[in-house]
């Protein structure tokens, strides 16, 4: 794929603009859209996220042509990145407020972080512990801190899918990946240099 064209999936999520700003800053051609045309035409797909699992799933179902998206990601193997709740919905099921089905692209469930001394949501800069080598980490060097805002996390059935975890009174998955599908629990668009490096690496996967 010669020309990079990134489609940021628009389903009314609050931080769409921040993701768009950072991609523009990095010099990429990106669009915020939910049309079949752009989902087919683009080279990379990003699903941003802020908010709860159930509310996000409902908005996604109402705005995004899911069959078209699934065809591009699962059949055509187009690189896909889910951010925060956008990563959590990749699982089979979520339990925030109510039980709700996810995409089921990466087998696992979304559960609440268990803490006794710390505050929830887990807000702030936390480092990632790399579990499995992947081109997504290229040039990351010692910059391991990312900005998180989450009370829930995606537990995956197969540990092979975990690229990195983070510690908040116990480890949770901060980066998961299965083939062309990636999920970041943190917000790369708010994580300065480290976040921009990972986004850049994602866009250069193919």
């Amino acid at each position: 794929m010669a020309k990079k064209f990134i489609c940021i999936l628009d389903y009314g999520s609050g931080n769409v603009r921040s993701v768009h700003n950072v991609l523009k800053h990095l010099g990429y051609n990106a669009v915020v859209s939910n049309t079949k045309d752009n989902i087919k035409k683009c080279s990379h797909l990003i699903l941003p996220g802020v908010g709860s699992f159930g509310a996000s799933m409902r908005k996604i179902e109402n705005t995004i042509p899911f069959d078209c998206l699934e065809e591009q990601v699962l059949k055509n193997a187009k690189p896909f990145l889910g951010i925060c709740v956008g990563m959590q919905v990749l699982g089979d099921v979520g339990f925030e407020f109510e039980e709700c089905k996810g995409f089921g692209w990466i087998q696992g469930s979304v559960e609440k972080l268990i803490v006794s001394d710390s505050t929830l949501p887990h807000i702030g800069w936390n480092d990632i512990i790399i579990k499995k080598d992947n081109p997504i980490f290229r040039n990351l060097k010692e910059f391991r801190d990312f900005y998180f805002v989450n009370s829930y996390h995606l537990k995956v059935n197969n540990p092979e899918y975990v690229l990195a975890s983070s510690d908040y009174e116990g480890l949770f998955n901060s980066i998961v990946s299965k083939d062309n599908i990636f999920g970041f629990q943190f917000h790369p668009e708010k994580s300065q240099k480290a976040g921009q490096l990972l986004l850049n690496n994602f866009i250069h996967l193919t």
Binding site: L26, N139, D145, K193, N200
Partner: peptide
């Protein structure tokens, strides 16, 4: 705290 850093804006596009 996070490791101190001076970010040179614009220089890390690969």
């Amino acid at each position: 705290v996070r490791k101190p850093d001076l970010i040179k804006i614009d220089n890390y596009r690969i």
